[in-house]
């Protein structure tokens, strides 16, 4: 019997690695991959809560389905933006794109 804490800790580790990747990586594509890791962590959490805490309603499962759906849309859009930036600036490294500066 696996207690719920196991899944939660796994999800925490996955999410923290995602955070590290988002903050440490320079390439926009790699940052996007780290974001995917964070989304996976969230899905694991949702499903764990659904099957342990409220099996009658399983809202978490439904949420996980939507997370996957939106993530697919998000990846498509984000990659299009990255392509656009690469074409305009000849780089996909986020720290070289600093047009927001004062």
């Amino acid at each position: 019997m696996i207690p719920i804490q196991h899944f939660l800790v796994l999800s925490s580790i996955l999410f923290s690695l995602g955070i590290y990747g988002v903050l440490a990586r320079r390439s926009a594509v790699l940052i996007l991959m780290s974001v995917e890791l964070m989304l996976q962590a969230v899905s694991v959490n949702f499903i764990a809560f659904a099957v342990y805490l409220s099996p009658e309603q399983f809202t978490g499962l439904i949420f996980a389905i939507f997370v996957i759906t939106i993530a697919a849309a998000e990846v498509g859009l984000a990659l299009a933006i990255i392509l656009r930036i690469y074409r305009n600036k000849a780089t996909a490294n986020v720290d070289e794109v600093d047009m927001l500066k004062w």
Binding site: L23, V94, D95, K101, W102
Partner: peptide
């Protein structure tokens, strides 16, 4: 304070986290 604005997204992300 304008010098806090580096324009680099990773800095902003770090601030958010």
């Amino acid at each position: 304070m304008k010098f806090l604005e580096t324009g680099k997204l990773p800095n902003y992300a770090l601030a958010i986290v």
